[in-house]
Simulated assay, not measured.
Amino acid sequence: MTIVQERSATDARTLISAGLRATLVANMRENFPKLTKERAERGVGQMLAFVAASACTAEPLSPSPLVDDFWHAFLLHTKAYQDFCERTFGTFVHHQPGFLDKEKHGGGKALRARTVDAIGAAGFLVDLEFWPELETADCSQCHANCHNSPVNA
């Protein structure tokens, strides 16, 4: 008889200190005044889960536009971001913007689906509110004032 024990998913917000989390939340709320503190907290978690999943796979992953904005907020704290990457993953996780070949990697929607799967596979909670493209058109990171654009957050 084999016993399978399911692990509960980890909230990626636990990967950084409460102080750094508060700083990132404050930065995002300053840039996007309509963003609630609760949603900003959750966004930090999804960004951290994305970065962690990216560190665990050789496959290209892609953040949603809103998750990318949270990542940019963290990247601006270069020392804290570098220390986080080295302490947590043993390597620096680079931000490499650009468009991947659609034929080889799928479009934006396929990349986001792979990203969400990778976050779950890495053991982190997925908050689908931060990945709305999975239910809508095949989007890219254009910030064209769509419903999920940070402009409307």
Rank of each mutant, 00 (worst) to 15 (best):
G123L: 08
P97R: 09
L134N: 00
A118K: 05
E135G: 13
G19M: 03
S8A: 13
A137G: 12
L100C: 03
K109I: 05
L76H: 14
L125R: 10
P60E: 03
F99V: 03
D69W: 04
F70Q: 01
A53K: 09
S140V: 14
E6D: 04
V67P: 05
R87P: 00
K34M: 12
T23W: 02
T88P: 01
L75M: 15
V126R: 01
A121P: 02
A144D: 14
M47V: 08
F50L: 07
V4W: 06
T136K: 13
S8K: 15
P150T: 05
A137D: 14
T91K: 14
L128N: 08
A113E: 14
A118E: 06
Q141F: 00
G90N: 12
T36I: 09
E6H: 14
D68E: 15
T136C: 09
F92E: 01
A113I: 11
A22N: 14
C139Y: 15
M47E: 09
E129L: 08
V93M: 04
V126M: 03
E135T: 15
T14M: 03
L76S: 07
V4M: 07
I3L: 11
C146M: 07
Y81I: 02
Y81V: 04
D117G: 02
F32V: 13
G107S: 09
M1A: 13
T78Q: 11
R7D: 12
L35E: 06
I16Q: 11
G107L: 07
R42Y: 00
T78R: 12
V93C: 02
A55W: 08
L24I: 14
D101I: 04
G108F: 09
V151T: 08
A122N: 05
Q5L: 13
T57F: 05
S54E: 05
N152V: 09
L20C: 00
D127W: 12
Q82G: 06
T136Y: 07
R114H: 11
D11K: 06
H72K: 11
C139P: 01
T10N: 03
P97H: 08
A12T: 10
F99T: 05
C56L: 01
F32C: 10
F84Y: 15
F130Q: 00
C85T: 11
E129G: 13
K102H: 08
L48A: 07
L125I: 13
V151K: 10
L48G: 06
S54L: 03
R87E: 15
A110V: 13
R114D: 13
E30F: 09
T91G: 05
Q96F: 06
T115G: 05
N152T: 14
F124V: 02
A12G: 09
K109W: 07
T91A: 12
R7W: 06
F130V: 02
V151H: 08
C146K: 01
G90T: 10
